[in-house]
Amino acid sequence: MGHLLYIEWLKIKNYRTFWILFTLFVISMFGICSLWWYFDVYTKESGDMAMQAAGSFIFGSFRFPGVFNTLTQISSWLLYFPGFIIIFLTTNEYTYRTHRQNIIDGIDRKDFIKAKILLAFILALLCTLIVSICAVIFGLMSGSGYYTNDILISVFYFFIQSCIYILFALFLGLLVRRSALAIGIYFIYGILLDYLIAMTISKYTNSTIGFYLMPLQVSDQLLPNKISSKFLEMLGDFKTSIALIICIAWIVFYCVFPVRKFQKEDL
């Protein structure tokens, strides 16, 4: 496993696009959080009760333990960056036909895909780590708080959400094979299509089932913001435990499908 990851590291360590996108993720994370935090502080200092209520409803709290929930919600919008990274890394193999060369040189087909899946998990882990560090920094900046298990649960849910977003990107990269097209589909699907399909299913079944079935929606609902929670409440009961099981099922699918596909096709 270490050997496979080392090969992936050799591929990305001098890959400028990787570093640009990763830096953008980190800068955006800290940048958006700083703006959010500044707004939070400003509304509190202004003494405007209506602004404070709106701020805490929309942005959430920056104190422990709420800061973890707030930041994981903000950063879920930034998961497109690691998604783009994995799409580029996957489609590059097809564009440069290096997937063929790797197999010719002696990588097992299964190991080639395993390396990409491992990389996706490591990216998800890195994103979770950065978000957690960010949460600790902003939590400390916002004053005292207390520790609850909700912190760990939020972090875990964010990791699951990251895995789904990044593995979905890997799945698209392997399926579409062209970077521009895969990124276009990934972005439009993530922003619009996944939600629209979930909505349509839910509308016709008069339940929340659509939000359970669609991969990005179900992972988003692990860390729901207050607006979407209210919306789902109107549709019916939504159980996080079931959502978590479905998320794990999607993760398993995104790991098994590429391995099967890559083992059976001509390269």
Partner: peptide, 13 residues
Amino acid sequence: TLLETPNFYHYLS
């Protein structure tokens, strides 16, 4: 092995 065209990472040395 050298099969058909050379396949390398364009952005690497």
